[in-house]
Simulated assay, not measured.
Amino acid sequence: MALIHPSAIIDPKAEIAEDVEIGPYAVIGPNVVIGRKTQIGAHTVVEGHTSIGSENRIGHFASVGGAPQDMKYRGEPTKLVIGDRNLIREFTTLHTGTIQDQGITKIGNDNWIMAYVHIAHDCVVGNNTIFSNNAQIAGHVHVGDWAILGGMCGVHQFVRIGEHSMIGGASKLVQDLPPYVIASGAVAEPHGLNAEGLKRRGFSHESITALRQAYKLLYKQNLSFEDAKKAIADLAAEKQSTEAETAEKLNIFHDFIAASQRGIAR
């Protein structure tokens, strides 16, 4: 049986799985689907075409599935899709997508989203990320797996944040942040490889050493962007026969920067 406080307002069309807990004065709209063992805090509003997976914990006073803050939005039935086992703390705002993009805002699994975080329309958040208090990402931002966003950081629309990267607190990120890199500053600049984070996640010494080489090729050797890309691709090819895992990580780094439309934070 779902554990729903009698003061909660649940639209009869909402799909609420067994073992869901919904706190006092929460409001659940008609186009909402909530998976098993998810907890919805007091005074939280879940609206829009929103699908929430299993075993999520959503704190009180959160706003989930609200309309996008986009002046082009005209009430289209766009979506918010949240995966499993996410911790979403109080006063967080998560908005649905727009038809100018794919029409879906996506949040993966096992993310830790702290208080007052804003995730705007059409964002795609991977798995195992950390959003510290008051981190704000604008529309169409993509955040890779295991990325960490420091408190009060702001991310410009359409920016991509690579996997295993880290943004320092109170930083402004206006260009793409490559995988594995730490950046911070009033306008965020790279400050080395996220080596400690990579060690904690089981990256080999060989992989971390090679990624340091790739970082230096991109940022420290005064190479042109095209020459740096070629040098990193050559390094990956060199490692392919003896260190396939390292080569794969180098290719992720290379492919990310090669695909950049906004330019790389430098």
Rank of each mutant, 00 (worst) to 15 (best):
M1Y: 01
L3I: 08
H5S: 07
P6S: 14
I9H: 03
D11L: 06
D11K: 04
P12A: 11
E15I: 10
E15M: 07
E18A: 12
E18M: 03
D19K: 14
I22P: 00
G23I: 03
P24C: 07
A26I: 07
I28R: 08
I28M: 06
G29I: 15
P30T: 13
P30F: 13
N31S: 09
V32D: 00
V33Y: 07
R36V: 07
R36N: 06
I40D: 00
I40G: 00
T44C: 07
V45T: 13
V45F: 10
V46T: 04
V46C: 08
E47F: 05
G48Y: 05
G48R: 06
H49E: 14
H49T: 10
H49Y: 13
S51E: 09
S51A: 06
I52P: 00
R57A: 08
A62F: 10
S63Q: 06
V64A: 14
P68M: 03
M71Q: 07
M71N: 09
R74F: 11
P77W: 14
P77H: 09
P77D: 10
K79T: 12
L80V: 11
G83T: 11
R85H: 12
N86E: 03
L87P: 00
I88N: 08
I88L: 08
R89Y: 09
R89C: 05
E90M: 15
T93R: 04
L94M: 12
T98L: 11
T98V: 13
I99P: 00
Q100I: 03
Q100E: 15
Q100R: 15
T105A: 06
G108P: 01
I113G: 02
I113V: 14
M114H: 08
M114L: 14
Y116C: 14
H118E: 03
D122T: 06
N127A: 08
N127C: 10
N128T: 09
N128H: 15
N128P: 00
N128C: 11
T129M: 12
F131W: 04
S132K: 04
A135N: 03
I137W: 01
I137H: 02
A138R: 05
A138W: 08
H142E: 15
G144N: 09
A147W: 03
L149Q: 04
G151N: 14
M152A: 15
G154Y: 08
H156V: 12
H156G: 10
Q157H: 13
V159C: 11
R160P: 01
R160I: 06
I161Y: 01
G168D: 03
K172L: 11
K172D: 05
P179G: 09
Y180D: 02
Y180V: 12
S184K: 09
G185S: 14
V187S: 14
V187D: 05
V187R: 14
A188W: 07
G192Q: 10
E196R: 13
G197F: 05
L198F: 10
G202W: 10
F203Q: 07
R212V: 13
L217K: 09
L217E: 05
Y219G: 04
Y219N: 08
N222Q: 11
D227P: 00
A228N: 04
A228L: 13
A233T: 02
A233M: 06
A236D: 01
A237S: 11
Q240F: 02
E243P: 01
E248V: 04
E248D: 03
K249I: 02
L250R: 09
N251W: 08
F253E: 02
F256R: 02
A258H: 06
A258L: 14
A265N: 13
R266M: 15
